[in-house]
Each structure stands twice: as structure tokens, then as C-alpha cells.
Amino acid sequence: MNSMLNDILLEAKNLKMYFPMTKGLLKRKVADVKAVDGVSFKIKRGETLGLVGESGCGKTTVGRCLLRLYNPTAGQIYFEGEDISKLPANKIRPLRRKMQLIFQDPYGSLDPRQSAGSIVGEPLLIHHLVKTNSYGDYRRRVSELFATVGLDPSMVGRYPHEFSGGQRQRIGIARALSCDPSFIICDEPISALDVSIQAQIINLLQELQEKLGLTYLFIAHDLSVVRHISNRVAVMYLGHIVEITNWRELYDNPLHPYTKALLSAVPIPDPVVESSRERIVLKGDVPSPINPPPGCNFHPRCPIAIPDCRQAIPPLRFISADHEVACIRV
């Protein structure tokens, strides 16, 4: 976008998250589920990085690792220059102010026994962001947040079940905003919503980004949505990032065979073009992350695989200044 955006807010280096599988009474470890297996990327201040991939590829796990909801198995996470991947639990709390999460499911992510105002205001109390024993301050800030996300401030006393899905998602966004974070992970924030409401929420997120200078990691499985909101897009497959580039390059010049297949699956809203386009249909299923295939883990389904693909995991390499691909065939 512009040169102002060049300082890096968050960087993940070779991030790994393995979930152990245990068996028997003694909790003997039999295998690992390699949900995230060596992921590296950088997010610049003020930009939106889209993270796409099919379900089960580890997108959400990456987000939760960055937030330290999971303790990553290996790798580093630098947030504002500081490695947060090994911070002890009691040092994480100040970090919570700066990194927030917007959930996929607007129904499950709000406490049903808490009023909307209390949901939005809770972070203010936890982080002492309003003067203690100043109820007026608290109420003013909550009303302000309600108005920011387009909700009527008179609804602060209502409970989640009295709101629609889109309104609930707005409450979730207000909660994420309330402690004034610099970085927000949007974990498929619109995939549980109606199409018409999806557009509203996307526009709201973009507006907030402009107004508040937020940085997003936007997790989605829908490429057309990612295209609207992202500056750069990372494509994940089975715990690995296979391609990172800016959105224009990704759509005009996809290089990795998986990215090509994904893009060819996006329907085109024009019946003539739609019927004449060429679709790349992948054969087979996603392999199990417990026992991924050797070498490039996409090779069993890859249309252009060669025997060399089984030898080693291909690293991400630069094709151009802003385009990295993990494939030996391009």
C-alpha cells in the first residue's frame, strides 16, 4: 500500500503446534497431530493478512497460538519486537490488551447470562481502563463502543438471545475493541452470517481499520471475502503455508498448484463465464495431519508432482519481491 506501513507488528517464525495423542491409563504418547508445522509470516502494522485454507488445515490453530491460547510446541512469535511465544502465563495478561480475537460463531461466543453492556465493558474493568468507582466513565465508554460498531447504546441492558446474528457479531467486535488493541485476529468472523449481513460486517471491519489503525489477521476459507479485505494473503495446506503474496498477485498470478485449485473453485457470478471456465479438481482427500505424506505434503494430490517432491519439505522461497511460494516446480 504505502511506505508508512512498513514496520512489522507481528512475526511468526517456524511456528509449530503439535497436539499429543495419548493412549491407555498411563497417557503414553502415541502420535502427534501436527496442526501447525513450521509456519512463518510477517504482518505489517496497519495491514490485513488473509489466511485461507480448507477446514482442518490449521488456520484457527495459528490464530490461537498467536494469542497464546495454546502454548506453541516450537518457534517464535514476535509481537512489537518482543518474543511472546514463551511468556509465562502471568505475563500474558498485559498482552491481551493489545491482541484481540473476533470469533466465528456469534451465538457461542457471547456469555448468555451476561448483558450486552457487561460483555463489552468487561475488558475495561479487567484492565482498569476506566477509573475505578467511576460508573459514569464506564457507561460512557460502553455506549461509545456500541455506537462505534453500529448498535443502539440503549440496548446495553439486553441479553445476547435478544439480538440477531449480525448484532451479536457487532457485540463481539465491540468487545474486541474495548481495550483498544492494535492487532485483531478475525477467525472467520462472517462465515456464520447471512450473505447480506456478511457485507455489513466486512465493511464495518474495514471502516474500523481505517479509523483506528488496526492490524488484522483475517482467517477465512472463502477467497472472495479475503480478496475484499486483505492486503496480502497466505494460503495454508495441512499445517504449512504454501504461498504468500499480495492479493492482486495471488488472483492474477497464482503459482502454487494448490492455490490454483482453490481459485478455480471460486464460482464466478456470470453464467457464461462460469460455464466456460476451466476447473482444477483435486483428486483424493486431505491426508491426516497425524501422519502427513513425506516431502511436500501436497504431492499425493498435486497435478504436477514429480518424484523429487517426496524428498524434502519445500521451503518458502521468493519468486518476486512480494511473492513467496513453497513448491519446487515453479
Binding site: A147, G150, D152, E162, Q200, I229
Partner: peptide
């Protein structure tokens, strides 16, 4: 980044409160 929406752009519409259920 600009995004021309096909949908109506009423992002900041303040919606009416639904009836309160006790």
C-alpha cells in the same frame, strides 16, 4: 483499500431494539 459492495452499504445503521423477553 476500496471495495465496491454489491450489497447496500448500511454499515453504521443503528438497528432497532428487539422486544425484550423476560
Amino acid at each position: 483499500m476500496q471495495f465496491e459492495s454489491k450489497y447496500d452499504n448500511r454499515t453504521n445503521e443503528i438497528t432497532e431494539a428487539p422486544p425484550q423477553v423476560s
